[in-house]
Simulated assay, not measured.
Amino acid sequence: MWAYVDSTRFFQIFGNLLDNALKFSQPDGTIWVDFSVIPGENGSGSVAALSVRDTGIGIDPTILPELFEPFTQADRSLDRSRGGLGLGLSVVKSLVELHGGNVEASSRGINLGAEFKVTLPVCEEITTLDNELEIIEAAKKSLKILVIEDNEDSAVSLQAVLEHFGHEVSIAKNGILGVETAKKLEPHVIICDIGLPEMDGFAVAQELSKDSKFTRSILIALTGYGSQEDRQLALKAGFKCHLTKPVDFEILIAEIDRYFDEVLSN
């Protein structure tokens, strides 16, 4: 059975799911990994389904609808000593959807285990030559990108998605580190949160605008506020693009691609 996937991201997806299953299971618990093919209906193609099921502490049903949201710290119990699930699952969801697939979670409740199922469209056999050409083409479009974001869920999700598209991605966790990292790396693209601690995104953009090295860099603002006034403030500060959270990855990639030829020609 064949599916068109980025092998690195594929292992990251199931690595996260297996890690969570281990983390939330008792030492004598059981974890199952199942694979099946679901035939297509009404002209749709078949999909491959891979699931990870455990006998662990389960998930509160009220959490399930928001479990994959990147800004939800969704624990499977009140025992926070085992860590949250928000980070890993938001990355899983982003990467699965980039592959044209879907991920869903189910649980009968606390202490009744949980199951995570990933479905991906299947395809005809892929030749090695086709893969090599894809890799070569992706390498030609690789850009240096800096993500300045204090929310770890958001930062890691952005990094995973952008690296999937072949870009070289670094992360800075606040505005001051963002400016320092930008001056050191001189990235083609800088994606910056507005509501940063110590030094906000507007100040970051204004500081970088003073340096001629960043005259041709692409500054993209990320914010939870999307009014016309917010957009105008971002553009005035030096951003070329203003996107609202949670970020739509298709729009973000489209914006980066739109400036791609301009960046390389400079």
Results as ranks from 00 to 15, higher is better:
Gly195Leu: 12
Glu207Pro: 05
His188Asn: 15
Cys123Ser: 13
Glu149Ile: 05
Arg80Trp: 13
Tyr4Leu: 14
Asn174Ala: 03
Pro197Gly: 04
Gly175Glu: 08
Cys123Glu: 08
Ser51His: 03
Ala172Trp: 04
Cys192Gly: 02
Ile194Leu: 13
Phe11Val: 14
Glu250Tyr: 08
Gly45Phe: 13
His242Val: 01
Thr30Val: 14
Gly86Asn: 02
Arg231Val: 09
Glu134Gln: 12
Pro61Tyr: 12
Phe239Ala: 03
Glu104Cys: 07
Ser7Trp: 10
Ser227Val: 13
Arg53Leu: 02
Ser7Cys: 09
Val91Glu: 08
Lys141Leu: 10
Ile191Gln: 01
Gln159Glu: 15
Asp6Thr: 10
Ser142Ile: 05
Ser209Asp: 00
Ile110Ala: 05
Asp153Thr: 10
Val92Tyr: 06
Glu186Thr: 14
Asn131Glu: 15
Arg76Tyr: 15
Ala254Cys: 01
Phe214Thr: 04
Ile253Phe: 08
Glu229Thr: 14
Thr72Asp: 11
Leu222Gly: 00
Ala105Cys: 08
Ile135Thr: 06
Phe14Ala: 00
Arg9Val: 10
Leu196Trp: 09
Gly166Thr: 01
Ala160Asn: 10
Met1Tyr: 13
Thr128Glu: 11
Asp6Leu: 10
Ala139Ile: 09
Leu89Met: 13
Val47Leu: 10
Leu120Cys: 04
Leu177Met: 13
Lys210Gln: 09
Arg108Phe: 12
Glu198Val: 12
Glu149Cys: 05
Thr55Gly: 02
Val91Gly: 05
Val189His: 03
Gly226Met: 09
Gly201Glu: 04
Ser217Met: 03
Gly226Arg: 08
Asn16Asp: 15
Lys141Phe: 12
Ser46Arg: 07
Val5Thr: 04
His167Thr: 06
Ala182Glu: 04
Ile63Gly: 03
Ala182Asn: 01
Glu137Lys: 11
Val156Lys: 14
Asp54His: 06
Ala172Val: 05
Ser77His: 02
Thr181Lys: 12
Ser265Gly: 05
Ala172Asp: 06
Ala114Met: 03
Phe239Thr: 01
Phe116Thr: 02
Glu152Trp: 12
Phe249Glu: 06
Asn151His: 14
Ile176Gly: 02
